[in-house]
Design a protein around this nucleic acid. Structure first.
Length: 589
RNA sequence: GCCGCUGUGGCUCAGAGGUAGAGCAAUUCACUCGUAAUGAAUAGGUCGUGAGUUCGAUUCUCACCAGCGGCUCCA
């Protein structure tokens, strides 16, 4: 039996599964060319060069063929060839992509192959002993994918699959996928009325409905208040600017494809061309530049609830995760070199506090995003500056006992980042929060401060967000809580349910009382049975239902029902108000 | 932007080359109800948009728009 909790074993299990997939495809469609077929976090895939995409019927046929290969318990044999022999071997088999891979292997690489019956693949392994060890297998989808991940290359046909040592585990996995679909913010968020989209407005441009807009307001107030406590100065800067601004910042050269430009960008040198802002940094820098600054003024911490516009390409938008217009808790700290580490820690501490308060901190991971020296065009500045900034950041991180991964090529165009990553309900990772060190834009904008010797110095700048992009954060919250947001964030905190129409007046009075106490409540005054009102409130993920009928009016109480714990019995109104207020004030999760 | 799938009343979904149905929701009426769906009646759709094929298209073809899953890119 297999210990599937062992990541290495899982990897070879899925890797062998991908060989079985390729074997089956080769048997059924001998003219396809092999790409690559690795194990991934959840399962495996294999890329094939074929003119036609694989239809879902074809996937079923392939799955059947895989089962035959599994049943035959074919052993996997490893063998090695030297470079020339390996190359000839794949040339003879007419596998141009494999030849390309062999050519790109480092000079000292051991070139190994795995053979199962008439199918052989270039592969470093390791693998299972024989194909019969793969038990339950399912092909989940087919999709296009560029060869070697570059859009300049041909698009191959990728088949994704999953496999397990027994059918039960496969069934469990499929059920978990089903549960994930139910929590998917893009479905649940629409169903619950947090947001919608319409084709008249366009892709990536959601309408925040009253419930969603309320949550964003709650979060925004929370963030702005907390930042004020931490010494931030709130700005409100324009949503657009002339190209002149972006030319200084480098956006015009390095970010133009991501910007909405009004007018003809080619005329930007001779006339005013405005563009919507993709970032707030250059705008807040203008505020800094208003007057000469002393080291005594620093650090200056600007924050802004900032609407941004990025022209994402059409296939990129997704729910509230990837948008063309979004709102970010964006801020920039201008500081002296010796303040840098403290300010960096402060930014991270704020982000961590936000994540803990909304209950997402246990779900995030940290990523140190560096530049890609092979791709200089993407960045401003020279290698020496990048090395300096990255080692500065490295040094700070090393002092912090922070667990993080390193990702080369993920830096911003102006500097390295510490990204706080989170996975959505389907396991797909996105950046929720980012803290960046920028050593270039201050210079470009001529931002300086006067040091104690009266000399002009270049400050450091930290670009940071505290709670991230509000829409994206809301998406993650909806998924985390399956739509039932903790009371302090809930758009509707309690719903009052009168037993019958003659209790409506008392219900409205109670609602007034609760609103006076600062609680967000509504009354379900419809002429429906109590069971139905409860059912609907329950499905709308209301945390509290307050039921009021003859007994309660008589006694000055409400019958409380909690979404999670069911009927809690009668509670004196004043006590209930205090209890709700307490739960909100402590931001209980 | 690229590859694929999808698009029928507010929602979930049937259906078929001869201009459409079900359940829930809505509205009205009756019931005045005690912890997850009261009953009856009524109304509601140029079948995403545009063009083409056809005697005729919502059904076939193409383009576009939007949603979804990937790839590339990214908060």
């Amino acid at each position: 039996m297999f210990d599937f909790s062992d990541a290495d074993l899982r990897r070879s299990y899925w890797h062998t599964s991908s060989h079985i997939l390729a074997h089956a495809v080769k048997r059924l469609y001998s003219d396809v060319k092999l790409g690559i077929g690795p194990a991934i976090e959840q399962g495996f895939y294999y890329d094939f060069d074929r003119n036609e995409p694989f239809s879902s019927d074809e996937l079923k046929d392939i799955e059947k063929e895989m089962k035959k290969i599994i049943k035959a318990k074919i052993p996997l044999e490893r063998f090695e060839l030297d470079r020339d022999a390996a190359r000839r071997y794949m040339m003879e088999r007419e596998e141009p992509y494999k030849v390309e891979l062999i050519d790109d292997l480092p000079a000292d690489a051991v070139i190994s192959f795995y053979r199962q019956d008439d199918f052989t693949d270039l592969c470093s392994g390791p693998h299972l002993e024989h194909t019969g060890q793969v038990k339950a297998v399912k092909l989940t989808q087919s999709a296009g994918a560029y060869w070697r991940g570059s859009e300049k290359n041909k698009m191959l046909q990728r088949i994704y699959g999953i496999s397990f040592p027994d059918k039960e585990q496969l069934k469990d996995w499929l059920e978990k996928q089903e549960e994930a679909r139910r929590r998917d913010h893009n479905k649940l968020g629409r169903e619950l009325g947090f947001f919608t989209t319409t084709e008249y407005i366009g892709q990536g441009l959601p309408i925040m409905l009253p419930k969603g807009a309320r949550v964003l307001q709650i979060l925004q107030r929370f963030v702005e208040d907390e930042e004020e406590k931490r010494g931030y100065l709130l700005t409100k800067t324009p949503l657009m600017a002339k190209s002149d601004l972006y030319k200084i910042s480098g956006h015009w050269q390095h970010y133009r494809d991501g910007m909405f430009i009004m007018g003809d960008p080619d005329k930007a040198d001779t006339e005013d061309v405005l563009a919507l802002r993709p970032m707030t940094c250059p705008f807040q820098f203008q505020a800094y530049l208003l007057k000469t600054r002393s080291y005594r003024d620093l650090p200056i911490r600007y924050n802004e609830t900032s609407t941004l516009f990025r022209n994402e390409s059409s296939g990129e938008m997704h729910g509230l995760i990837r948008l063309r217009q979004f709102t970010i808790s964006e801020g920039h700290i201008v500081c002296t070199p010796d303040q840098l580490e403290g300010e960096f820690r402060g930014s991270l501490d704020l982000a961590r506090f936000m994540l803990e308060t909304i209950g997402l901190h246990d779900d995030v991971s940290y990523r140190f995003s560096r530049w890609d020296p092979q791709n200089r065009d993407k960045y401003i500045g020279d290698p020496a500056q990048w090395d300096a900034a990255q080692s500065t950041m490295q040094g700070i991180l090393d002092h912090m006992e922070l667990e993080y991964t390193v990702a080369d090529g993920e830096a911003a165009f102006y500097g390295p980042k510490l990204d706080i990553q989170i996975r959505n309900v389907f396991g797909k990772e996105d950046t929720l929060i980012t803290v960046q060190i920028d050593f270039q834009l201050a210079d470009r904008f001529g931002m300086t401060y006067t040091d104690r010797n009266g000399e002009k110095q270049a400050p450091f700048i930290i670009h940071r967000t505290s709670i991230g992009c509000y829409e994206r954060t809301l998406a993650l919250l909806i998924e985390k809580y399956a739509g039932a947001l903790p009371l302090w964030m809930a758009p509707e905190q309690a719903r009052i349910l009168p037993i019958s129409e003659r209790h409506l007046d008392a219900a409205n009075q109670l609602a007034q009382q609760l609103r006076q106490a600062g609680l967000r409540v509504s009354v379900d005054g419809r002429d429906e049975k109590i069971g139905k009102k409860i059912r609907e409130a329950q499905m709308e993920k209301l945390q509290y239902m307050l039921i009021i009928g003859d007994q309660e009016i008589e006694a000055g109480t409400v019958a409380v029902r909690s979404r999670r714990d069911g009927d809690l019995g009668a509670v004196v109104i004043a006590d209930m108000i205090a209890r709700l207020q307490q739960e909100v004030a402590t931001r209980q999760l």
